[in-house]
């Protein structure tokens, strides 16, 4: 099974965000692979490994990482390769600076198609910088395949079908989808492995294809930004929480609060 995992290099979300006009400053800041993408890479690796050790289906096939971003995004690709992915594709082009989610989906779909036949494309539910959450669905549309969003568990993968559990507000859907398909996975779909030193050192030798827009037969017009950020404002500071003085009813009040938040 050939699996493609979309990975994104983002400014380290643990550091204060720096802006470059109305877009996030991406160069000259400390970057990391989007933490949400670790779950996608792990999901891809687990499916490949499960097929390799299971009966019937052969373990042939590769996990390919596909990313779009500046040259520094190579670090995100290498990070995924160090976890165990087989190869990478990085699309870098000055024209792509400030791209919106639609243009990104167009570029990634072209890169995925150029990479060859695929059975499954995995992405995180949303990026930890832009948070649009629209990429996986748009990507599926461009690729002309079904999309299953917010996958919280991969139940089985065999032949041409994938069975997954899909998170909903009050439970989950059990979904079977014919392949090829795109899925987006939530944090919690698995426990991403630590990159081992051997994996990190082997990652250096794994192939990464670097492509520009023209390699994908796309022009600047094809990826012109269609949405504009008109205004930026700071998020409101979080207000102090409610303090419950315990007069004997505090436990019940906390339980009500948790019920309201649908935590219990």
């Amino acid at each position: 099974m050939n699996i493609v995992v979309c990975v994104k290099h983002i400014p380290d979300p643990n550091l204060p965000a720096e802006m470059d006009g109305k877009t996030l400053k991406r160069e000259g800041v400390q970057g990391v692979m989007d933490p949400g993408d670790e779950f996608g890479v792990e999901a891809g690796l687990q499916i490949k490994e499960r097929l390799a050790t299971g009966d019937g289906e052969s373990g042939e096939g590769e996990v390919t990482l596909v990313s779009m971003g500046p040259a520094a995004a190579m670090e995100a690709v290498r990070r995924g390769l160090s976890m165990g992915a087989d190869k990478g594709v990085l699309v870098s082009d000055d024209v792509l600076k400030g791209s919106d989610a639609l243009a990104t989906a167009k570029v990634l779909s072209a890169a995925i198609q150029k990479n060859g036949a695929f059975d499954l494309v995995i992405a995180g539910v949303e990026s930890t910088d832009g948070y649009t959450g629209t990429l996986p669905g748009t990507l599926a549309e461009f690729l002309g395949v079904p999309h299953v969003s917010t996958v919280k568990e991969i139940v089985s993968a065999d032949g041409g079908t994938l069975k997954v559990n899909r998170q909903t507000a009050d439970g989950y859907h059990v979904v079977e989808v014919g392949l090829p398909a795109v899925i987006s996975v939530t944090a919690g779909v698995n426990e991403p492995r630590y990159a081992s030193f051997k994996g990190i050192m082997a990652a250096k030798k794994k192939p990464v294809e670097q492509l520009s827009l023209s390699d994908l037969d796309l022009s600047g017009d094809d990826v012109a930004v269609k949405q504009e950020v008109t205004e930026l404002s700071k998020a409101e500071e979080r207000e102090g929480g409610e303090i419950i003085e315990d007069d004997g009813s505090a436990a019940a009040k906390i339980a009500d609060f948790l019920k309201e938040a649908k935590v219990i």
């Binding site: 990070r79 160090s82 630590y194 990159a195 030193f197 990190i200």
Partner: peptide
Amino acid sequence: SPEERMLRDAVRQF
């Protein structure tokens, strides 16, 4: 080097 940073980050995460 990028590789040194990745090794470092792996230990930091652990």
